[in-house]
Design a protein around this nucleic acid. Structure first.
Length: 421
RNA sequence: GGAGACUUGUCCGAGUGGUUGAAGGAGCACGCCUGGAAAGUGUGUAUACGGGAAACUGUAUCAAGGGUUCGAAUCCCUUAGUCUCCGCCA
């Protein structure tokens, strides 16, 4: 969440930035500041009254030790009076604190100056493209047909076992998944990311930390019996590894990578968007996360974008890099680059990675800090997919299909154990 | 799942109602000592939110939340976690 100090010090700039994100309730900013003024005043009164009570209680202790019972009793009465004035202050303070916190989490992160204005995906800015779109042979088909033809994925079987959006990978299809995961993890660890295998369920505090709660609970599967959430992305458990941790400056940057399945309810999706592998309830993804010095986060973002870009290039897929506009970026992000790969048979772009700088928005909630010559301050957090598997698989199948089979990119051949499917 | 023990600062560890934010030790930082280092020695060493130009100072925090009390690390309740034994089990 945003810091109150930012709201206070740069009120107008904050409002202007929220406007870029098409945030509707700009008036919340002034409302929060006013509420916090009230909170501060109450807090001051509380502290003052409490100080009197503490001092008097201490005296009572000393009087009792000296056996001056009557004086002690008199002080007790005095404290009784203080306590009566304290009660309403305490109550008001609790309400004020809760209200400020509630409203503050409703403010999205401020977009960086690089974020283009706009409302829809059409307003995203194409930064660059790479690779070239393939000329498919005459009988070329979309990936769901290829998956069937080569017996790689059984969608109907997933429907039977679980429901739509839960495909069953089979034979070479399953092996290719494993090869992709292994390749991505090796590629990430070679770049200095430490591999983690985190839990696939998280508690409320973790979901709150990365911003899935309080608003987006409808997007996660919730195990109500134990009050746990299935992770929608490895970002949640991995970033929370450092929740409530104060790092040493020398420990920065922290670079982590993890493979996990991801679970998303995707309520309201339909049509061609959800055909085949385009949008699933369960999918596999390898994620990268960085915690960095606040001065270095944009440098780190560029570094992560370059990292993901090289990975996509190594898969020999045509891609484009988009800088998301204010209206299309996530609630918690300050700047996001999306990678889309060209799905040659569907003739559309599919998002395969989203790389974001959250600045201190997540770390403020999670209290991830570092010590800089005695001064403690928040680190910046970033994450990106490196990479999400299903759409990569879809594009690999579609783009690399030939009459004789699917030719795998060289980078994958060793992991998969052969050149073709 | 049942029974019991436990959860204190960066770490170890003392502390069962009254100047305890917390003894003692270790670690770390800086200084002294040394040709240099070790040893020794001195000082310092939590976080959040307030007040103050600053020095400094108030409040809160001894797993978390609530209660009793003039006063709680210390007593009571709830929750979470750790350990031991039993049960179950990949």
């Amino acid at each position: 969440m945003l810091q109150l100090a930012t709201l206070r010090n740069d009120t107008e700039a904050v409002k202007e930035r929220l406007g870029v994100k098409n945030f509707k309730e700009i008036e919340l900013v002034d409302e929060i500041i006013a509420l916090d003024d009230n909170r501060k005043a109450l807090n001051f009164q509380y502290d003052e009254t409490k100080a009197k009570i503490n001092a008097a209680s201490k005296e009572i202790g000393q009087l009792m030790a000296k056996g001056q019972k009557e004086e002690a009793a008199a002080r007790k009465n005095e404290v009784e009076g203080f306590k009566q004035t304290l009660a309403p202050i305490e109550e008001g303070l609790a309400v004020a604190e809760k209200r400020v916190a509630e409203l503050l989490v409703r403010l999205p992160n401020l977009p960086s100056p690089l974020v283009p204005r706009g409302k829809t995906p059409e307003d995203n800015e194409e930064v660059r493209t790479g690779g070239s779109k393939p000329q498919l042979h005459a009988g070329a088909v979309p990936h769901w047909d290829l998956a069937k033809k080569y017996d790689l994925i059984d969608f109907e079987l997933g429907n039977k076992i679980t429901g739509s959006g839960f495909p069953v990978y089979k034979g070479k299809g399953a092996k290719l998944q494993r090869a992709l995961i292994q390749y991505f993890l090796d590629y990430n660890t070679a770049a200095g990311y430490t591999e983690y295998m985190p839990p696939h369920m998280v508690n409320e505090a973790s979901a709150y930390g990365t911003g899935q709660l309080p608003d987006k609970e409808g997007q996660m599967y919730h195990v109500t019996e134990d009050n746990l959430y299935l992770i929608p992305t490895a970002e949640v458990p991995v970033t929370n590894i450092y929740r409530d941790v104060i790092l040493k400056e020398a420990e920065l940057p922290v670079k982590m990578t993890a493979y996990t399945p991801c679970f998303r309810r995707e309520a309201g999706s339909y049509g061609k968007d959800v055909r085949g592998l385009n949008r699933l309830h369960q999918f596999d993804k390898v994620e990268i996360v960085q915690l960095v010095h606040p001065d270095k986060s944009y440098e780190a973002l560029e570094d992560m974008v370059a990292h993901v870009e090289k990975l996509i290039q190594s898969l020999e897929l045509p891609y484009r890099v988009l800088r998301l506009c204010g209206g299309d970026m996530s609630f918690t992000s300050a700047l996001t680059y999306d990678f889309e790969v060209w799905s040659a048979a569907q003739e559309r772009w599919l998002e395969v990675s989203s790389v974001s700088n959250f600045e201190a928005y997540q770390t403020h909630r999670m209290k991830i800090r570092f010590k800089d010559e005695g001064k403690t301050q928040l680190v910046h957090s970033l994450n990106g997919s490196s990479l999400a598997l299903p759409r990569i698989l879809a594009c690999l199948l579609e783009n690399h299909q030939t009459e004789n089979g699917i030719v795998l990119p060289k980078s994958l051949q060793g992991y998969f154990g052969s050149e073709m499917i």
